[in-house]
């Protein structure tokens, strides 16, 4: 996918506390003209209306805001939107197929009741999808360790492990 790279900020067009960011979100090019303070989380939610990514602490300690940047899972609350310039961002909205079909991990989460209130779920899903890519679903203990950056106050951990295990091909 072609990406554009800006040299931010652009002082001639806006005041010096504004930055232009060009990025690709869920496969589509996006441009944000935003306050330099804006985090990637805020830009996704407030500028692009992608509210699936959640703010649970805004301090990098709960994982609810997990998204993929260039294929790696990161905390969008601890990343300036400007730092995503020229990068590929994927959010939970990007997991759904082009015809609206659920991602196998999303299906597994529903089947295993791997959530309750659903608030941490987008972050859990984004972590879980990466976890498989990282090759870290070899055992339940491994899944638990590498999913521990995503808090679930409803306590759905056992079901999340079951969903990840199934999506990893280990059966239900």
């Amino acid at each position: 996918m072609k990406t554009t790279r800006s040299t931010a900020p652009a002082p001639t067009t806006q005041d010096e506390y504004t930055v232009d960011v060009f990025t690709v979100v869920n496969g589509a090019p996006v441009q944000w003209r935003i306050d330099t303070r804006t985090t990637l989380l805020e830009a996704l939610r407030d500028s692009s209306g992608l509210t699936g990514t959640k703010r649970g602490c805004d301090q990098g300690a709960c994982g609810a805001c997990t998204v993929h940047v260039d294929g790696a899972r990161v905390l969008s609350c601890l990343m300036l939107a400007a730092q995503a310039d020229g990068r590929q961002v994927t959010t939970v909205e990007g997991l759904v197929g082009e015809e609206g079909q659920l991602h196998p991990m999303q299906e597994a989460f529903v089947r295993h009741d791997a959530f309750q209130c659903g608030f941490c779920t987008p972050g859990q899903l984004m972590s879980a999808v990466c976890l498989l890519r990282e090759g870290r679903a070899g055992s339940d203990a491994e899944i638990r360790e590498y999913m521990s950056g995503n808090l679930c106050r409803c306590g759905a951990y056992d079901n999340i492990v079951a969903a990840v295990r199934e999506a990893a091909g280990g059966g239900a």
Partner: peptide, 21 residues
Amino acid sequence: IDRVDGPHKVTGTAPYASDVT
């Protein structure tokens, strides 16, 4: 049976108060 609101929650489309503008 599976949670009837499950698909909304796993796709990030369930509207929470924080999502309202």
